[in-house]
């Protein structure tokens, strides 16, 4: 039972990240590596706020804004300085490493004893019987809220223009709109969500670690690809829902692999190999490898 709750908690947190990556990877067709930096950025901002006694829910918001700023930087570098998409992400990701260290003040920040979004006077009012699930409950609320808001956004005028930007940039130009601006907006929203995920993760594991972002892009893309290809033909399911389920499924696979006796340091290799397996199994491979290699 603890294992399942753990998988759901982690899966839903990475689900928030995957929703962010869904915007760049699937909607904008932009391979964004900024996430490896914006995920720990959210965690660093959160560590700074929470250890200083700040409101943990406010930390969610500030983290998301910080992430959006990082995403906008990648967008500006790509659009205004005409740097290739992959390189723009690498530049910001690398720079964020230092920024994250400065914000957190240390390479490791434990949050023991501080109030978090999952452990505070307000949330502890929940009945005793629910207490093993309270972390999961809060994470689920955040994930569902993000999903619903994203669904609503994609139906607005701005959201539809964002989809058109990824689909056919030229159409956006003939609609007298700057497609570059839409890319910047998309990257900002995407990395805002990734940083929000970082904030949730940091509070859930009560720990900030400078290198926690390594491999984020792999987790995000694996979740997006699993979700969108498995549920491709399920018409009633929105891709946002599919992506969250994909994330939980991916987490379950990793947990299973860990359960057969591998140790924590083996995790990245497991993640990488799993991602490769997913790429090979899904039909997305041909098209995407050609586009992004």
């Amino acid at each position: 039972m603890t294992l399942i709750i753990g998988i759901l908690e982690q899966g839903l947190i990475y689900g928030i990240l995957a929703l962010g990556s869904y915007i760049t990877y699937k909607i904008l067709d932009f391979p964004d590596l900024t996430v490896d930096g914006s995920f720990p950025l959210g965690a660093a901002v959160t560590a700074a706020i929470v250890t200083a006694g700040g409101n943990p829910y406010l930390a969610f918001l500030v983290s998301a804004l910080a992430g959006a700023l990082a995403g906008a930087c990648t967008g500006l570098i790509h659009v205004k300085c005409r740097v290739r998409d992959l390189l723009a992400g690498i530049i910001v990701m690398t720079g964020l490493y230092t920024v994250n260290y400065r914000i957190a003040g240390m390479a490791n920040v434990p949050l023991f004893g501080s109030e978090t979004a999952f452990d505070n006077a307000w949330i502890n009012q929940l009945p005793e019987s629910l207490s093993p699930y309270k972390t999961l409950l809060v994470i689920a609320v955040v994930a569902v809220l993000v999903k619903v808001l994203l669904d609503l956004y994609l139906k607005t005028k701005s959201g539809m223009l964002l989809r058109a930007t990824g689909d056919n940039e030229r159409l956006v130009t003939t609609l007298a709109k700057d497609s570059g601006t839409m890319k910047i907006i998309g990257l900002a929203i995407s990395n805002g969500l990734v940083a929000l995920g970082g904030s949730v993760m940091c509070q859930q594991q009560r720990f900030f670690e400078l290198s926690m972002g390594t491999g984020t892009v792999v987790i995000c893309l694996a979740s997006v690809i699993i979700g969108t290809s498995v549920f491709k033909n399920v018409r009633w399911m929105k891709p946002t829902m599919a992506v969250i389920i994909g994330s939980v499924f991916y987490r379950a696979c990793v947990a299973l692999a860990m359960n057969i006796g591998l140790v924590t340091t083996d995790m990245k290799l497991i993640m990488a190999v799993l991602f490769l397996v997913i790429l090979i199994v899904t039909a997305d491979r041909k098209k995407k490898v050609k586009n992004h290699a």
Partner: peptide, 13 residues
């Protein structure tokens, strides 16, 4: 249909 107007957070359709 929305060309020439703003693309903000109004309903797309």
């Amino acid at each position: 249909d929305n060309k020439g107007k703003h693309f903000f957070l109004g309903r797309g359709i």
